[in-house]
């Protein structure tokens, strides 16, 4: 059970502010989720380059020579940027798949949070404000992002259990609610070769969308079919390389508020999350309908 925030910028001049706006939204949702916090941020593309966000509980040791070791092992240039317990590795897009495997071989304790052209995912246990400070989330810029504060229901309070979940390149998902058929679905998706790293119900939701898109569905279609295939209660906010989507289950009892202006589209579990946004007093504010897919693209 959780608090969700999301922000999709239409006005490019706000891009340097994305991190600070999202952080403010995230911190207001602390009561809904004091156990952990996470954020997915979509930055600027560097042509031909992919980035992997990795995390380690022993960051200093694990990250010190990671980029160099990876570069040597893959025989391609790799640069690294350390941010607290996280690091972002950049390398040629052609090597991103190989890099995933090689990181597991070189540093088995490292967790891969995300990979893609523009996505970076940061998440940690602890109060959202502390997490945001440790990772300097407010200093980040980007085109769109989502954030999540978690009150764990049935899976552990760990970094792996924190949202957002990413099960495909540049994809992420955050969730408020609880799914009731995730165990059976996890077994089925695992057989289909989709990677699922935790026992968390939300990760299965993310993996489901990844699987549908791998089978050729557009994100909107994948969200549409999730309404039939996922059982339980959910409000999802998802991110893709250039898009941002929202869907609620047909019963729709987990809260959701949206706001749109000329400058942005914003999502919050409560209106409180939106109060600091510029022009919120005159924004169009509404509650997303049940079983209805909302989607914005750059």
């Amino acid at each position: 059970m959780c608090g969700i925030v999301g922000l999709f910028l239409k006005d490019a001049s706000l891009q340097p502010e994305l991190g600070s706006m999202l952080t403010q939204m995230l911190v207001t949702m602390t009561d809904r989720g004091p156990d952990s916090a996470g954020i997915a941020i979509y930055g600027t593309e560097v042509p031909g380059q992919a980035r992997l966000t990795v995390q380690s509980d022993n960051a200093q040791h694990d990250f010190e020579t990671l980029a160099a070791d990876l570069s040597r092992a893959l025989d391609t240039p790799v640069t690294g940027r350390v941010n607290g317990s996280h690091a972002v590795l950049s390398l040629s897009r052609d090597y991103s798949g190989a890099a995933r495997d090689m990181i597991r071989a070189l540093r088995p304790d490292i967790r891969i949070m995300s990979d893609g052209d523009v996505i970076e995912i940061y998440k940690e246990t602890g109060l959202p404000e502390d997490v945001a400070t440790r990772l300097s989330l407010a200093q980040m810029g980007g085109t769109h992002g989502v954030g999540h504060t978690r009150m764990a229901t049935e899976s552990a309070v760990t970094t792996e259990g924190a949202h957002p979940f990413s099960t495909g390149a540049d994809q992420c998902l955050v969730h408020n609610g609880s799914l009731s058929n995730h165990n059976a679905l996890r077994r089925r998706l695992t057989r289909e070769g989709i990677r699922i790293g935790s026992m968390n119900d939300t990760e299965v939701g993310a993996a489901y969308l990844t699987w549908r898109m791998r089978e050729g569905a557009m994100l909107g279609e994948a969200l549409e079919s999730s309404l039939a295939d996922l059982d339980g209660f959910f409000t999802f906010v998802v991110g893709t390389k250039d898009g941002f989507g929202v869907v609620r289950d047909p019963i729709a009892c987990k809260p959701a508020v949206m706001a749109e202006t000329e400058q942005y589209v914003a999502f919050g579990s409560e209106y409180r999350a939106l109060v600091s946004l510029p022009g919120i007093d005159t924004a169009r504010v509404w509650e997303p309908e049940p079983a209805t897919v909302y989607f914005w693209n750059h």
Partner: peptide, 14 residues
């Protein structure tokens, strides 16, 4: 079977 104006621990807190 459910309360009419809240669902889940995040709402229960409120």
């Amino acid at each position: 079977c459910r309360h009419p104006d809240w669902t889940g621990p995040d709402d229960l807190e409120i």
